[in-house]
Amino acid sequence: MALPAVLFFGIFALIPLFGVVVISFMEWNVLGSPSWVGLSNWQAVLFDRPFTWTALGLTITFVIGSYLFQAPVALLLGVFMAGQQRYRALLAVLYFLPLLFSSVAVGLTFQSLFSPNYGLSAALPFDWLPNDWLSNSDLVMWVMIFVVGWCFVPFHGLLYQAGVRQIPQSMYEAATIDGAGRVRQFFSITIPQLRYTIITSSTLMLVGSLTYFDLIFVLTGGQPANAVRILPLDMYVTGFSSYNLGYASVIAVILVAIGLTLSLLLNIISGSSKMESDKAGA
């Protein structure tokens, strides 16, 4: 019964996961067939290529920046959408819209909106407004963090909305009787009750922004300036534009390693709190 699923999953997902490690020890320029070169790709990518470390730094900035933007907005949005007023339900329907667009669609939209010749900067009569959003190397990283957030905040908002709706209303009623205000309730009831959702959402956000590059690829027209060439994008460009699939595989393995470590760490952190909330019957 499970055989077809196992075959598909094994051949096209599990084997490639090990395959990427194998290819990282091979030289392969797409045209020929891969040949064994031992550790030389690793040596080259880690020690003879300073940009790897620059890209790692950019990746860390991107991941942390994305998290600091997405997590608070998604949490507040989730609480807001879980509220009982009718207009909030209507807004929630509209908040979802970014999830219907492909990354290319979003990329092209913002590319046009942030164009130096038309779009936002031409439409708004503010002199202080920059018009080189996508070419200014000090600015472009923050623009990417914003656009990626635009895409993914709605999804995490939904997770938090579902989480908030599981919190028993009686807790808030009791707190109100005790005279706790809205802010106090948010920090003393909502946040602790959402522990599990926070961990899930955080894992998805961090690991997601570690490997996601479609949007940056589109926004930079496939020729990323070095200011936003984060590791996954570096992997793609190295592999499929420079045709150095051995180097690219090394970068891919590094990404998988960081991703797994990150999820494991978050899993350990969540371990105790998860059990508590299970006991509480949540």
């Binding site: 096209f12 599990l14 084997i15 996961l17 395959g19 990427v20 690991v207 490997t211 592999g239 990404l255």
Partner: peptide, 24 residues
């Protein structure tokens, strides 16, 4: 065991396996 392995699959990033998938 099978369920555990499949669950692990949720964590496999597509981007990181694209090179072997391409080869395959």
């Amino acid at each position: 065991r099978l369920f555990q392995i499949i669950l692990l699959g949720i964590a496999i990033p597509v981007q990181a396996t694209i090179i072997p998938v391409y080869y395959l």
